[in-house]
């Protein structure tokens, strides 16, 4: 399956096709609408229960109701909690004292509680996939990115390569682990465990193109309703990673949720790196060679 990876970079064909799957099902993914998330963490537990992901430590973090801190080898779904002194739309929050629209009302106090379920983005151009030297990480026929645990030798290269900080090495096991978008369930036509468990349908699973249209409609609906903060994150196929397989509707800046504002897959700059490396190698050779030219005593 080693087609020319640089070709993949340039044309934005469907990632599964680029990875060599000929007739493959349409690319599927997640659209997570955080405006209807109630922070119940059913997704975290359902994912762990289906995939037998081990529990990773009991510590009270004080980060509002988030005690699992972030995505990693033992947390494939992570719910973020952000308490802000701002108002969502025209929500009346009792203790609110200022009038008028949302905004940083200085003379009073509104409260809102953003909740968002984070997951692997299954990027169109996945840095983890690109840098994996053993080919353990591969593109599935569904367009998702999965680690083959029988091949991964724990080299750890994918971990710093991922611009979102999703994949990680599992202590004691040595291998890299991350969300597989329930590749086994997709195989039998079932939806991923987290999407099924989500009580308010904040996690929506489906064909990616349909999800993108639905997200656009949802965004328009929210903007018309006066919720100006709403924005889509990872929906645009033209962005730094070629669009995400799992994209989001957020209600604030991505970094407030712990997401990079403008992630770019490192492979984009790789060609230039190789050119620079080659010239450095030649320079080195030249340098060493030159140091022998002068007639020395």
């Amino acid at each position: 399956m080693t087609t020319n990876p640089f070709a993949q970079l340039l044309e934005d064909a469907d990632p599964a096709t680029a990875a060599g799957w000929t007739d493959h099902p349409p690319r599927v993914g997640f659209f997570t609408d955080t405006s209807v998330c109630i922070g119940c963490k059913a997704c975290e537990v359902a994912c762990k229960e289906w995939n037998h992901v081990p529990e990773d430590g009991l510590r009270f973090t004080g980060m509002s109701y988030d005690n699992t801190i972030g995505l990693g080898a033992d947390t494939w779904r992570h719910v973020a909690f952000i308490e802000q002194e701002k108002r969502i739309g025209r929500q009346v929050t009792g203790a609110a004292t200022s009038d008028g629209d949302r905004g940083d009302d200085d003379d009073g106090h509104a409260v809102r509680w953003l909740m968002s379920s984070d997951v692997c983005k299954h990027c169109t151009h996945a840095a983890c996939l690109d840098v994996c030297p053993t080919g353990a990480l591969f593109r599935t026929e569904f367009g998702t990115v999965v680690v083959q645990e029988d091949i991964c030798n724990g080299c750890g290269y994918c971990i710093p390569a991922c611009p979102y900080g999703v994949i990680d090495q599992r202590r004691g096991d040595g291998r890299a682990w991350k969300c597989t978008l329930c590749y086994d369930r997709l195989g039998v036509g079932a939806e991923p465990a987290c999407a099924k468990a989500c009580p308010t349908n904040s996690i929506q699973f489906g064909v990616l193109d349909e999800l993108r249209e639905r997200a656009d409609r949802r965004l328009a609906q929210l903007h018309d309703a006066g919720i100006g903060d709403a924005r889509l994150y990872g929906r645009d196929p033209e962005d730094g990673v070629g669009g995400d397989g799992a994209f989001f509707l957020l209600l604030d800046e991505p970094e407030v949720y712990g997401l990079p504002p403008d992630p770019v897959v490192t492979t984009r700059d790789l060609p230039q790196m190789w050119r620079r490396t080659a010239s450095a190698a030649v320079l080195l050779a030249g340098l060493v060679g030159a140091s022998f030219l002068r007639r020395t005593r």
């Binding site: 059913a42 099924k196 468990a197 009580p199």
Partner: peptide, 19 residues
């Protein structure tokens, strides 16, 4: 996992149910 036929829960569960 959740039972999609149920008119009450439509196949969904909370964290406790999922555990």
């Amino acid at each position: 996992e959740g039972d999609p036929d149920s008119p009450v829960s439509r196949g969904r569960l909370c964290p406790k149910g999922s555990a």
